[in-house]
């Protein structure tokens, strides 16, 4: 069951931004774009320098105590009662859905629950809290894109239509839906290296389906998927370019 997420009671003045470890090392521009989008809506964005990783890699590998200690470092890094906005449905899902379970019976159980309740996926926050889908002004050239929804954003965070609402709000952008949009791209964290052949077959089908949309770009809200899909597109010499939603929106509306 996806998490039941509701907007904060009042329009927040300050938000925390949790960049995620993958964005930090590989896609910092996407991370920064998300912060810019929030800032341009008049919100103060706080980026705690003590943040690192949500702990999901260890958690999903069955190394719970290591996951918990890394997660605890995040509880420490985000002490105020502000929303925590995350440019990744997967990491958001880890923190919102799994932290309460990870800390069950732990001294930080209450803190973890409160933290979990403050976690928002970026596109959801942009639509349901800031109403950005009604405010976007597209300044870009005509382009055709397709959307890839990440499994965890859809099935843990309940984010399904929000990103597409944002994309559809852009007047010069044509969104071509991929009939296999909701099928996993085969990343799955350590799955990609534990079952490399199955993962390869999955991403091969994924880039085929993306190719069939004829889109110039595949936009997604999760950098794990983008790394997988983008790497496969690249290796196969396909013209479609991967891009994170935040970066795409910022580029369309505010230029580079």
């Amino acid at each position: 069951m996806p998490a039941h997420v509701t907007p904060p009671a009042e329009m927040p003045k300050d938000v925390y931004y949790f960049g995620t470890c993958l964005v930090d090392l590989f896609f910092p521009d996407a991370g920064l774009a998300g912060m810019e989008l929030l800032k341009r809506q008049g919100i103060r964005v706080v980026f705690p320098q003590d943040q690192s990783c949500c702990g999901q890699p260890a958690f999903n590998s069955g190394h719970r105590s290591e996951a918990r200690e890394v997660a605890r470092a995040q509880l420490d890094a985000f002490p105020e009662d502000w929303p925590i906005v995350v440019p990744s449905g997967s990491c958001a899902g880890m923190m919102r859905v799994h932290y309460p379970d990870l800390f069950q019976g732990d001294r930080d159980e209450e803190r973890a629950k409160a933290f979990a309740g403050r976690v928002y996926e970026l596109s959801w926050f942009l639509v349901h809290v800031l109403g950005l889908d009604t405010k976007l002004v597209d300044k870009g050239e005509k382009v055709t894109v397709t959307w890839h929804g990440s499994c965890h954003s859809m099935r843990e965070m309940g984010v399904v239509d929000e990103p597409k609402r944002l994309i559809r709000a852009l007047s010069n952008v044509t969104l071509v839906e991929n009939p296999r949009e909701k099928e996993c791209c085969g990343f799955g964290g350590t799955f990609a290296v534990r079952q490399p052949e199955v993962s390869a077959a999955m991403v091969a089908d994924k880039i085929d389906a993306i190719g069939q949309t004829g889109a110039a770009r595949v936009v997604s809200g999760d950098c794990g998927c983008l790394m997988n899909i983008g790497g496969a597109l690249d290796k196969a010499g396909k013209p479609t370019r991967p891009q994170h939603l935040a970066e795409f929106l910022l580029e369309r509306c505010h230029g580079r």
């Binding site: 920064l32 706080v46 790497g231 496969a232």
Partner: peptide
């Protein structure tokens, strides 16, 4: 295993931590 069907992921020249500091985001 990763690069059998994908290109190698590229580390960015600066981390988001660095960029956030440089752009003046509050810590």
């Amino acid at each position: 295993q990763w690069t059998s069907v994908r290109t190698k992921p590229k580390f960015a020249a600066k981390t988001l931590h660095q960029l956030a500091r440089e752009k003046g985001y509050d810590n």
